[in-house]
Design a protein around this nucleic acid. Sequence first.
DNA 1: CTCAAAACATGACAATAGTCATGTTTATGT
DNA 2: ACATAAACATGACTATTGTCATGTTTTGAG
Lengths: 246, 246
Amino acid sequence: MSKRPKKSLKQPPAEQSGPAFPAGLNQIPLLQILSAQDRQKVLGEMTETRYGKGQYIFREGDPTEYFHIVKEGSVKCVKSSLDGKECTLKVLMPGDLFCCDASAFDGASHPGTAQPMGDVSVLRMKKEAYFKMLRGNPDAAMEVIRYLGNRLNEAQEKAKVLALDRADQRLASLLVNLAERSGIQEPNGIRVSVRLTRQDMANMVGVTTETAIRIMARFKKDRLVSGTAARLVIRDLAKLRLLAST
Amino acid sequence: MSKRPKKSLKQPPAEQSGPAFPAGLNQIPLLQILSAQDRQKVLGEMTETRYGKGQYIFREGDPTEYFHIVKEGSVKCVKSSLDGKECTLKVLMPGDLFCCDASAFDGASHPGTAQPMGDVSVLRMKKEAYFKMLRGNPDAAMEVIRYLGNRLNEAQEKAKVLALDRADQRLASLLVNLAERSGIQEPNGIRVSVRLTRQDMANMVGVTTETAIRIMARFKKDRLVSGTAARLVIRDLAKLRLLAST
DNA sequence: CTCAAAACATGACAATAGTCATGTTTATGT
DNA sequence: ACATAAACATGACTATTGTCATGTTTTGAG
């Protein structure tokens, strides 16, 4: 529930020495899996960078030199078309990996842009070191396979929604996902902890901003949600679920 | 170019003994990567199954017991909505892996249906044996990571197209992909080696069959393509590319 | 606190794609 | 080769969503 302690769930790390297991890193499954000494080694090879609004972590077409992990905040993965339309493929949360994938191999360039949503902190590691780590740690490699597999399923589920559903259903799906992934239970509903404008939502489900605004207004009228960007609350998750899967 | 010999590209396998490196398997990167003896071991754990039209390899919701590789033919990954609409997420070709992903962990069930397009041959392996193989072969694990990463990029690119493009652009994108992935150069154009009806295409790009038919008719009139399902030929790849990325 | 910028809102109209109905052509199995 | 089903085709109409214009409210930096 709360984001602080909970000790470690699996493989209680042996008593730490040297630079202690830093706060905030216990939300990162990939690091949890490593032995204490491997983790120290990996952390020694990672650098932490902070980004703020308006900055980019990397942009579509940039060369892929690093493997990344979100430590704090949210990061959005965006692709644009030539005529300036944008589409948000995924909102990464703490613990999410990016550029853990094939684009990082082959010397290919980034297929999309990564930009911070508010203030974020990101861990980076040279891809060569990352590959070496994976080769030497079957458990870590398995974790990355599991992670990528989940991301693939998620991306395909998203493609299905985009291919088959109407605008209102897509938005309902999005709201359900947000509630499940980043929702905080509150007296009057589930608050979405990520700041999302109607435009952000529109980009996430492939509709125009106007359409997103109109549909959200309807949802508001029907008491399915309340609030706007800074404080969006899901008030009737069940009805949204129903609408999403109709 | 031709699909027959070419010997092996990397790691020329030591002289084989016992059940020789079977024909058709040299198109499967994951197996190429293994040492000769590991490969024999893995092949010993895999069974080959043939499927024909109208059958299913597995269905949405079935438990995930096996890891699969396409050996011959094409397999489509499909998801359906409650009201019977279908969406084809991916056409798998020889060498493609499936259920190599997270759904195979966690005891989750299949997120989609796999069905043969015509006659196909599929290799299967108990997932426990597959995981063991990956743990013991860092090269194989890295290959799976690369493969999943590519699939993820592909799925996200598809999501982008579904989110931002019009029906004609989506179809043009599809045709470009088909030409690149399964095209055979012919005197009058690039023939698509997979049999695809207008309905198949419609399901792949999230439009109705009628819309796919109308747009394909227009493409035909404009000499961008010719032929139908059994013999679809891309006649002007450049113009299709242009339309896809307008 | 103030003011500019961003976010939210709404109407009128246009474009796009879906639906349903019906008909023709092309494959496919026996 | 013939029958039958599947695939392709087309028109008329409808539903959905996009576009553009304009206005209000909220937010956040200084």
